[in-house]
Simulated assay, not measured.
Amino acid sequence: MPRRLPTIRLRVIAASTIVLVGLALAACAPEPSESPSANPESTPATAPTLDAPVFQPDGSADDNLPIFAAITDRVWATEERASGRAYVDALVEAGFDRTAMQVTPDLTTVGNPVESLQFSVRWGEDKCLVGQVGPSTGEPVTTVLDQLAEGRCLVGNTRPIDW
């Protein structure tokens, strides 16, 4: 056994030396540059940025739910949050078809603001994008639902979109 002890010591010394030399070389290496490479082909691709959702006229109702929800949230964050017209106008501006929309009244029969305002866009032959906002709802709610009879999206009293 006395013969093995020097061999083990040599191995430990050799391993320690390799580690120390590696650390010394790493400390001497230049730091990576934060500026882009002069050669655009050698620049690594960056992660794609998350763009705002866009209206997809040839897409499905599900494809257009993100833009519908974003518009709903945007209007909800304004002073016009209780105005059905504000939601309709913002949706039309984004590309949705006004003639395919429904909206409930802004006021109750006694003239008070409604507790819940609903608006919708009929999509294709069988789907609807539906939004609901108001004090009773809390945060805006948007979803895709099946169309009702006669191509309607909302149950109950809706108002004409004649502006």
Rank of each mutant, 00 (worst) to 15 (best):
L5I: 15
L5F: 14
L5C: 02
T7A: 15
T7R: 15
R9T: 12
R11Q: 13
V12F: 14
V12R: 15
T17W: 11
T17C: 15
L20T: 15
L20V: 15
L20H: 11
G22E: 03
G22I: 12
L23C: 13
L23P: 06
L23S: 11
L25H: 07
L25R: 09
L25N: 08
A26W: 14
A27F: 14
A27Q: 14
P30Y: 06
E31I: 11
P32F: 01
S35C: 00
S35Y: 12
S35K: 14
S35E: 15
P36A: 11
N39K: 07
N39R: 06
N39A: 07
S42T: 14
A45R: 12
A47G: 02
A52G: 09
A52C: 05
P53V: 03
V54N: 09
Q56A: 12
D58S: 08
D58T: 10
G59C: 04
N64W: 06
N64S: 05
L65V: 07
I67P: 08
F68N: 02
A69I: 07
A69Y: 00
T72H: 08
T72E: 04
T72P: 07
R74K: 14
R74T: 13
V75I: 11
V75W: 02
W76N: 15
A77W: 03
T78H: 07
E80T: 10
E80F: 10
R81M: 10
R81K: 15
R81F: 11
G84W: 01
R85M: 06
R85V: 10
Y87L: 06
V88E: 01
V88R: 09
D89C: 01
D89F: 05
D89R: 13
D89L: 11
A90L: 06
L91C: 08
L91Y: 07
V92G: 06
E93N: 13
A94W: 05
G95Y: 02
G95T: 03
F96T: 02
D97K: 07
D97G: 01
D97I: 04
R98C: 03
R98A: 11
T99C: 00
T99I: 08
Q102E: 15
Q102N: 10
V103M: 08
T104R: 03
T104M: 04
P105V: 01
D106Q: 02
L107V: 08
T109W: 01
T109N: 12
V110H: 10
V110K: 14
N112C: 00
N112W: 00
P113D: 02
V114M: 12
S116C: 10
S116R: 14
L117H: 03
Q118A: 10
F119E: 03
S120V: 01
V121T: 09
W123A: 00
G124R: 08
G124L: 04
D126S: 14
C128N: 07
L129A: 02
L129D: 05
G131R: 04
Q132E: 13
Q132W: 00
V133F: 05
S136F: 08
T137Y: 01
E139W: 01
P140S: 06
V141E: 12
T143K: 13
T143M: 09
L145E: 14
L145H: 08
Q147P: 02
L148S: 06
L148W: 02
L148G: 09
E150R: 05
G151D: 02
C153P: 05
L154E: 02
T158I: 05
P160L: 10
P160V: 05
P160C: 00
I161L: 09
